[in-house]
Amino acid sequence: MDKETFAALVTKQQRQLYRIAVSYTGSSADAEDVMQEALLRAWNRRNTLRDAAYFSTWLNRILINECKTLLRKRKRHVLQPDLPNISTPPPDEQAALLRAALFSLPEKYRVPLTLNLLEGYTLQEIASLLSLPLGTVKTRVARAKHKLEQEVSSHAQ
């Protein structure tokens, strides 16, 4: 794959990469770091991608691995633990409530939930992306939805 094709495919899923990275890390700055690491790693390993049709999932898997590595290596002191450190403000109060509720979920619930609801991955695909048993993913997505609804209603009160 040449540089132009690679760049075009990456740019096409720019928003998706941001959403996954920021959902995972809770920080715009960290999202940038992991995105950069993931792109460099993907470029260096592009010969391992057998079928370009799977580029998106392949790149997302690399990004998720980078997120995991970053969080494990650099366990950030979150100064205001209730607030995700995202540089772009939510557009309105309802979005702000949902953002607060989403980031009050532990990462192990938040990530499968966003992959499922936001990125449209099936539970089986999420299991593969996160290297988790299918049963675990099912449990986590179900609990995440339940917890998110609880959080949204408690934040709204």
Binding site: Q14, R15, Y18, R19, V22, S23, S28, A31, E32, M35, I86, S87, T88, P89, P90, P91, D92, A95, A96, L98, R99, L102, T114, L117, L118
Partner: peptide, 12 residues
């Protein structure tokens, strides 16, 4: 959910 995450930052 997409709106809750805000716009993709220009720095990204």
């Amino acid at each position: 959910l997409d709106r809750a995450l805000g716009e993709t930052p220009p720095s990204f």
